[in-house]
Design a protein around this nucleic acid. Sequence first.
RNA 1: GCCGGAUUAGCUCAGCUGGUAGAGCAGCGGUUUUGUAAACCGAAGGUCACGGGUUCGAGUCCUGUAUCCGGCACCA
Length: 660
Amino acid sequence: MIDLIFPDGSQRQYEDGATGRSVAASIAKSLEKRAVLIKLDGKLYDLDRALPSGGVFEILTRDAPEALDTIRHDASHVMAEAVQELFPGTQVTIGPAIEDGFYYDFARDTPFSTDDLATIEKRMKEIVDRDEPITREVWNRDEAIEHFKSIGEAYKAEIISDLPESEEITVYRQGAWKDLCLGPHLPSTKHVGKAFKLTKVAGAYWRGDHRNAQLQRIYGTAWASEADLEAYLLRLEEAEKRDHRKIGRAMDLFHMQEEGRGMVFWHEKGLTLWRTVEAYVRRRLEAAGYQEVRTPQVLDRVFWEKSGHWEKYRPNMFVCETEEGEELSLKPMNCPGHVQIFKFGQKSYRDLPLRMAEFGACHRYEPSGSLHGLMRVRAFTQDDAHIFCREDQIEEETANFIELASSIHADFGLTRDHITLATRPEVRAGSDEFWDKAEAQMLSAARKAGVEPVIAEGDGAFYAPKLDFVLKDAIGRTWVCGTIQLDYVLPERLDAEYVAEDGSKQRPVMLHRAICGSLERFIGVLIENYAGAFPLWLAPTQVVVATITSDANDYALQVAQELRAAGLRVETDLRNEKINYKIREHSLGKTPVIAVVGRREAEEGKVALRRFGSDGQEILSLAQAAKTLALEALAPDVARSTTGAASVSPREPVGAREAG
RNA sequence: GCCGGAUUAGCUCAGCUGGUAGAGCAGCGGUUUUGUAAACCGAAGGUCACGGGUUCGAGUCCUGUAUCCGGCACCA
């Protein structure tokens, strides 16, 4: 007998061999009809599978949030069946549910084209209409391998061979089609419904390794209802509008062109935003005890050989040769340069921790396929710094850094998605004992700062583990902005040392860290986060003074001058256009404040302020307007120190999350 | 780098099965002096990404290259 505890707290006993379906039927015939899965002690099971034990029990219908992943997973199976029907000879590999949908990787000589998607989608709907029952079978391991080999499914056979001996081999039959799968699944294809859409085709490497064969991946999105699907597609459309590349052009912030792939031409407005960000970060670093330096842009090959970068990253470095035959490289990073400054003269234990910062312009020849607007470029500026410290200072420095970075991200209105702890990679420097210690140090520092990192197995740098701060862009892609990495290797390689208390020479530890990551990427994320509607302190143009008639031109110039004197970034619009036209244009341009002046304001010495996102007006004297706006335009850190108040931010940040 | 897709005026996009290019907005010239999200008129603007080919004829078909977009891989 097994005991089941239901959501309402009641408890009932069932015969051994009872299934979710039989339990549902015992409660109500209508429930049995609607049931698609069951949840037992938090785990999902097929409706028709004999319950393995008693426990906390719940019957899930198709609308249950927990069922959505299974709908998506089943949609991927339905797609695989459709593909194998339509394209005989195509092998299946894996097809999981993912955020918002699913994909399936196929092995096939001829790649799929986007035109195939409609055909496959149509066949999928037919399979749903066929209402093929989905049933679970447990197979003998060797027979399973033999079977999949015999039907030409080499990848499936390989997957089974690699499964641990203890693992049960389960095969799901779906009509005449079958697939090796852990499950669970819905009772039949009908339950997948038709709220799905195939979205894109892509190449993907078998097991995520570029040395393996490239498979054909088809992505789709699937939802419980047609309405959810519509809502998702609408959300995507909205998110595309905040793409930083689109907004960057529309707002005249920057551009890129063919001759400089992965290089940014910053226009006046974009650079203003850049300088605002940079100035803010510089103030925060100064307050946190950093010193700022600048190191050479181009250095001799020998220098990079010594640091170890030449050997490992030569293909990704911009190298040039001089007339005299010297080989030089544009710096791909700032660390070795900082070590030179550290080594200049003698350093004492009293100098530690020594925090050395540089807004360092670096160049890396990134693979062509990885370039992506401002997010991944070949010429970028890191808000880089290296903390030289003793081993016993690592934890505190790391914890302080996490707090500083979190505070800075918050001031920019950015919501962190998560922090990852990237652990030892396969190819690495240093012993296992070293890695054990280093990983433990990073983890405990994170916890000390109140953060529980997500572990990214094997993603560490070759010399050390790292903590990465992950933010999201408008359509939910994640980008690393901010990182801290522990490094014992470079100080050793470049022979950095300090004099300890007892007079002995000691090796410092280096913490590599960045808060924005690269200014380019950070600004890209900022643009998408705010959809271009920046808070006053960041907006490239803060105020536009717009005239109603040319009578007010002189006064408008005076207004602009006074607002500029108060430290604001001001433009004037004296064009011979109707005020409606100007309001519309500057509203679409997302200018935070439009100051309208007509004959009335000129006579009374006033301005009519109109804020972005509101259609009301605020009539103030010129002096008062200047004072109010100047106060609102203070950067959050300055606002805190001058007013003692929390950040003055009249404009709500538009969360990237809502688009994710 | 790999797989798919795209590339037409400054921008956003039309251009059916091949018959030598079209709109809206912006820009320019004029009229209009206007009170909080688009005043009116006019003229102009294109080697249809680039190279080769098929054809009497190519923006349209084939092919190569470049760049961009979506993924994959990479990211010191």
